[in-house]
């Protein structure tokens, strides 16, 4: 890493840029993940479309490990930057206000990015234990994975957990997506309104989309 790149990445603006970039890529992954999950609706009882999709992923062979490593790296960098930025932000105001009010564009989502982020990370670890590592280090066979999905989501406690998980992801993305545009310097009256609406829409789509599967499971698989 050249000195210039190192300086960029260690600067406040550089860190926000990396935060936005990794966030964007993670959103792209989640959209693909959601599309994949939608295949569950094709054949609810036997999951043939879902199994077919997962079989295609298995065709990638060792390349799947590269993708998984890349994805883990994206999450790792995103979390690491979040920890650094949050620690710096807390240190920047050692004495809190006795009375503080907001009147900008602060929202429930924007004020709680760190909280929702930590909860999502915890949820993600459980999610990986549930499905990716259900059979040890090697990913389960497609049919086994579908059986595992049925087993986990048919449990009302885990179904509730995945509904909350989906909503948290939606809330997090609804601020993160538009925030990333500003961090990239993409702020112009021509696009601002669209970015804001898209950000909220994306959050709602991800929340409703991911929350829909456990609800479907409770209705169809119990």
């Amino acid at each position: 890493m050249s000195n210039g790149t190192g300086k960029f990445l260690s600067s406040s603006l550089g860190k926000k840029f990396v935060m936005g970039l990794t966030g964007f890529l993670l959103v792209a992954f989640m959209i693909v993940h959601l599309l994949e999950n939608l295949s569950l609706y094709v054949d609810v009882d036997h999951g043939s479309a879902f199994i077919a999709w997962v079989e295609k992923l298995h065709l990638l062979g060792p390349f799947i490990w590269v993708l998984e490593f890349g994805l883990a790296l994206l999450f790792g960098v995103h979390v690491w930057m979040a920890l650094k930025l949050t620690a710096e932000n807390r240190a920047a105001r050692p004495t809190p206000y006795v009375m503080k009010k907001t009147f900008g564009e602060s929202t429930l989502a924007s004020r709680n990015m760190f909280v929702t982020g930590v909860l999502i990370l915890g949820g993600l670890i459980l999610h990986l234990i549930h499905f990716r590592f259900s059979k040890g280090l090697h990913a389960p066979a497609p049919a086994d994975l579908f059986a595992r999905v049925r087993e986990v989501l048919a449990n009302p406690i885990w179904a509730g957990f995945y509904v909350v998980f989906g909503i948290l992801v939606g809330i997090h993305v609804s601020h993160g997506f538009r925030s990333a545009f500003q961090s990239f310097g993409a702020n112009h009256p021509r696009i601002n309104c669209c970015v804001r609406r898209c950000s909220v829409a994306l959050g709602v789509i991800l929340a409703l989309g991911f929350a829909s599967f456990p609800i479907m499971a409770l209705i169809s698989w119990r």
């Binding site: 406040s12 603006l13 860190k15 926000k16 840029f17 930025l85 710096e88 932000n89 240190a91 920047a92 105001r93 907001t102 009147f103 900008g104 564009e105 602060s106 929202t107 924007s110 004020r111 990015m113 601020h175 538009r178 925030s179 500003q182 961090s183 990239f184 310097g185 993409a186 702020n187 112009h188």
Partner: peptide
């Protein structure tokens, strides 16, 4: 030792001169 921007635009709302956050985007 200033903190980082969380893009909530409280600064713009509080600025007595109404300076826009588009200036932060330009700096970025």
């Amino acid at each position: 030792g200033f903190g980082n921007c969380t893009n909530e635009y409280e600064c713009e709302a509080a600025c007595p001169k109404g300076i826009s956050v588009t200036n932060i985007a330009r700096m970025n």
